[in-house]
Design a protein around this nucleic acid. Sequence first.
DNA 1: TTGTAAGCGTTATCAT
DNA 2: ATGATAACGCTTACAA
Lengths: 353, 353
Amino acid sequence: MVGGDGMARATIADVAKLAGVSQATVSRALRGVDKVAPATRRKVEEAADRLSFTLLKSASALASGKTMRIILLCSGGLNEWFNANVLQGAYEVLSPEGYDICPSFIRGRDEMNRYFAQLPKDRNADAIIIASFQLDETQREQLRSIDMPVIGVNIPAESSCDASVCIDNFSGMAKGVCLLKSLGHEHIAFAGDYIPGNMVYSASQRVEGFLEAAERNGYGEDDASIVMCSEHSASYGKPQLAAELVAKILSSPNRPTAVCAETDQMAIALIKELKRQHLRVPDDISVIGFDDADIAEVADLTTIRQDPLELGRVAAYKTLQLLKGESPAEPHESQEPMLVLRDTTSRVPLSEA
Amino acid sequence: MVGGDGMARATIADVAKLAGVSQATVSRALRGVDKVAPATRRKVEEAADRLSFTLLKSASALASGKTMRIILLCSGGLNEWFNANVLQGAYEVLSPEGYDICPSFIRGRDEMNRYFAQLPKDRNADAIIIASFQLDETQREQLRSIDMPVIGVNIPAESSCDASVCIDNFSGMAKGVCLLKSLGHEHIAFAGDYIPGNMVYSASQRVEGFLEAAERNGYGEDDASIVMCSEHSASYGKPQLAAELVAKILSSPNRPTAVCAETDQMAIALIKELKRQHLRVPDDISVIGFDDADIAEVADLTTIRQDPLELGRVAAYKTLQLLKGESPAEPHESQEPMLVLRDTTSRVPLSEA
DNA sequence: TTGTAAGCGTTATCAT
DNA sequence: ATGATAACGCTTACAA
């Protein structure tokens, strides 16, 4: 019984038969790459249509060696603002080119090591984009030994990937510090998260950037302080953490009149706690965030914007180039963050000026 | 020259040779499904390890007919709160089982039609999860004709998929209305977005839910009003849209003392505009959101919570079951939303009571 | 428990 | 421009 059981899916052979051409021609016609006579192409397309035929990706992949899949590896959940935006950006440019994106993420050092160890063996993608990692030397080595293109997003160590985009955390922090200086603040602080096993990307750069900028702007050691929260309070959640930081800030010898937070999240937690302590923001103390995530606008937070959506797009463009065998003119790019002025910063309080 | 050019990747045949067994045995050992003698398994694993061998997914897929890939189709960007959380939830349960998730999304009616038209032909995934769609009859028909499992998340029309999870928008709105009633509000309103080509999921259910609940709670027709914004102002962005809605609210014959917004986003935009009009929230007017997205907490918004992360997980569990050929005990589940009390609701203003 | 061998549905090389 | 045909690397009856 030909075509018996519920009509199994058509293959390229069926299309070839119906169109009266060879399989090879069908393949060429459908992919639109090789030279095919217009008339032939039409015949093939019609036949394919009649049979509801589409190419089987796994078969194409096996035969061609191209999987048409790209891995997006993130640290932290795919539901985090940064990662979700990188994904969206990458999707926007990769998808029209026929690539599938397989997002995946890694939770801690252990998982990371396991993942990286098996990465060099992996042939199930054509390229890998990795976002927001702090890499140690072993991992960089592993990355280099992968034989597919590796594209980095906000990772230090350009040397370990074929291309990368990142934001310039130093320049960003410099803008924050300059703003505070121009607003007359003489005592400023940086409030940092506890960094677990420092998996996290920009954290360390932001502290350094703050210190550098402070020095360049004439702040003495006692005028620009760093407050970091302890591992202990970090495990109690953001509010607890903010409470600890605020305590440290308010009890400083030279009480800062402005603070740069490592992230918007941190900034918002700080503001809540400051209000709880009956300090008005920005009247009594100014606060600057970093990222310009969705929550920043809601909180009317002055912040330093980075654009992960664009980061994702740029990473994807580079990926495409690499995949074509071209080497990008500027393999390692850096995005300039932008200061966004809103309502949590103001001139230094009169009482302190 | 054997093993000449940079040592091409090992295949299952190489492993078989090195382990001194057949390809079939290697395959069985590596997948851990069939019966393999422990000693044999060890030999195979060791050989695979020495050769840095991993199975090629496309080859496995072709041979077995299983792609080990699951499509997640969303309406709206992958960077939206809802979608990003569904993705994360689905990833959490699907990934450990060896499945890859391929997120994709659709922007408008046109794209949607195109996508749905070619869906029945698609053999490049083992299942598809679709999130947040309003489907017309044609599309339901197309869904039914797909021969892979279709799992719905927040889509009406259970009938068109093999399993689904959604939140109960009616019950959610009912909670909001009951809250307002118990706070003494006698005039209430629902503020809705303009719904473009009504692609959007829960929108219509929420309006209906509001009306139903209002009636059940004794609100007369003039005591519970609906304000929707026009297509025109929708194109000017949220603030414009909020301005229009606020104007409508404040000019109502029976001016509402409380309003339920269709989403948190809408609620927050309303609150901003209300403040601009020198109305205090909640002292002069109460506002309730819907979703409990990240921004809700920042805005201290009283809202009705849904949990898309859990929605994603549940959808994934059902997917897994379907893939195993089991039919879920409860194919179509519904999540009960939860009222979250924060600072944008209060008793009705004294002047009006 | 293990081996043999026939596919799986494409792509790509080489002719024509 | 088109056609034969040999891979591609694995899974799965079926046999042993």
